[in-house]
Design a binder for these strands. Structure first.
Lengths: 349, 349
DNA sequence: GTGAAAGCGCTAACAT
DNA sequence: ATGTTAGCGCTTTCAC
């Protein structure tokens, strides 16, 4: 039914090999111009499309990479995916979608599924609590790069924003605004490196400015609106009035907290300054636009593909850490002079 | 390097066919229990993984479907993708990602790319202005279903929410609240069926309630925050004070409009009632939570896959239209009695 | 410059 | 109940 190489060959009066050569441009000048033209014409006329399966089988490749995503419901990964897709397409790689669901403990299935579909490598995106399956795949030799997270127990290169630095910048910004009692709402569960790094950045900034960390001002979050909302209520109960600023480890948490403030009659930014992390699309459109730390999402997606290709082709690849960018909006009050750092700037470690 | 069928066969002391039979469970009872066990054991021990390419080549299938997405940057498609992925996985189909960029006029490339990767069918998701390439693929016989849109020029089944009905419900809700001067911010460009349907629903509701449509109250949007923001300003200039309510054709536009109102000192919902469409994740978390019309996104993704599989397997499939659900929150003021309709309810046309 | 032969890993059809 | 043969559509030697 579908046109094959030999159909074209027969029609053009040449052998399959010749057609193959023309199509793939193997031996650039070892095919006569006349033959090449004839073949090309026939290919076009017959609307020939190479069979990926056959080519793949012969080459021992699938030309597919997988992206295992967690928390698809957030608005973060759209840009990431765009970056991944574009970079992959440029390398003639297809992107197979896998969705992980932390909540259902289905973490594993997506990875296994991708593997069994023969992907040449996997981009392991998002929060990770238990990289057990990923570890196993890596041990089996499947190229894998972590995106937006860096689990120490996982022997795979990562592409991340500098969580520590971003948190440090955010906290320092609040300090320069004159705040002393700065709380942190964070997903600092023991096994989430990402949240841990942000917490560390927060701590370091305070200490560097001679302020002792008050552990009662550090409340657990969980990357969601709800968690930020709850955390804010808890914070209010525990230390009403003492806190003048909050650094939330994600925009989700920040927005949840903002909502809680509004309900409790606490004015942002007048009564309390609020800063988030991630720069999600909606953060700029809130009634009180959120000051936050941005990640170069699309570039990070592209970088992950680049690293993965290195791995696939047998090269080692460095970890990549992108520079975060502080985005000053209104949720912390008065405009700051020039806290903008450069975006897209990247450091290799 | 990788373990193949014949490796397993040799190791287990049987022929390749036998191994194949055990693995695929062809001829359920035509393999002796003893042999089956031996094979299974060997397969496990050698960690054999079937080669998708070889199987695909032989079967003449790729076991892949493509999803061509537009506007990946929005937070809408996360849930859609989840639905698509889950339904596809259940049917043992992989999901290949394609991203279309309307802005760059790159609409075509993703579709072509998916086709050349041999997908068995395509889910064509999102706003469509010019379905030319899609039309071409359909003409070539590639199964394709439209998701979240229904372009009349495209001879392919669709899965959508009932845009007309949703818009009608939204407008009617405003009417029951006592509003007479209701504006519409909508993406009613001539070639976007989705926006057109919503506009039609708006018009019908007004007319059914004996209110003549004032065309000056219908301002063009564009599915984005910015467009809603601009539209609101335009509306204010044109008919300051005359309008008491606005139905925006998307939550993005509604939020943009809300922001504009805030800047102009117009209070939502006191001075003006505002209702959106889509129920994006953040809409519930705004300072003034947005009343809106929800779509059963995950279910729609699943339905699209189901329809696509029908097509792939040579069956015809009906269009599917999901029932929208009015979500009453605070942006229109006073709580309504019980405007909640059922969700997940679907009508086939 | 071009073609013939072989084989990638698998399954379907036909033996035995 | 198991094996043999053939071939999916392509690319890669190697020969002419």
């Amino acid at each position: 039914m579908r046109v094959t190489l030999s159909d074209v060959a027969r029609e053009a009066g040449v052998s399959v090999v010749t057609v193959s050569r023309v199509i793939n441009d193997t031996y650039p000048e070892k095919v006569s111009e006349k033959t090449r033209q004839k073949v090309l014409e026939t290919v076009a006329r017959m609307n020939y499309k190479p069979n990926v399966m056959a080519r793949g089988l012969q080459k021992g490749r699938t030309f597919l990479i997988g992206v295992a995503i967690v928390r698809v419901a957030d608005s973060f990964f759209g840009e990431i995916l765009q970056g991944i897709h574009d970079a992959a397409a440029a390398a003639d790689l297809g992107v197979l979608l896998g969705t992980r669901r932390l909540d259902i403990g289905k973490d594993e299935s997506a990875l296994r599924e991708l593997q069994s579909r023969g992907v040449e490598g996997i981009i392991y995106y998002g929060t990770t609590q238990d990289p057990q399956t990923a570890k196993y795949l890596v041990a089996e030799g499947l190229p894998l790069v972590q995106l937006c997270n860096s689990h120490t127990k996982l022997d795979a290169p990562y592409v991340v924003v500098d969580h520590f630095r971003g948190a440090y910048q955010a906290t320092e910004y609040l300090l320069t605004l004159g705040h002393k009692r700065i709380a942190h709402i964070g997903a600092y569960q023991e096994r989430d490196p990402q949240g841990l790094m942000r917490l560390a950045g927060y701590r370091a900034a305070l200490q560097d400015h001679g302020i002792e960390v008050d552990e009662s001002l550090v409340v657990p979050g969980g990357w969601t609106w709800e968690s930020g909302y709850r955390a804010m209520h808890q914070l209010y109960r525990q230390c009403q009035g003492k806190v003048t600023a909050i650094f939330a480890s994600s925009d989700f948490e920040a927005v949840g907290a903002m909502r809680a403030c509004q309900e409790m009659g606490i004015k942002v930014p007048d009564d309390i300054a609020l800063i988030g992390f991630d720069d999600l699309p909606f953060s700029a459109w809130l009634d009180i636009p959120l000051t936050t730390v941005a990640q170069p999402k699309e570039a990070m997606g592209q970088a992950a593909v680049k690293s993965l290709i290195d791995l696939i082709e047998g090269r080692s690849t460095p970890n990549v850490m992108f520079e975060p960018e502080l985005i000053v909006r209104r949720s912390c009050g008065g405009k700051s002079p020039s806290q903008k750092s450069e975006v897209g700037n990247l450091l290799s470690t």
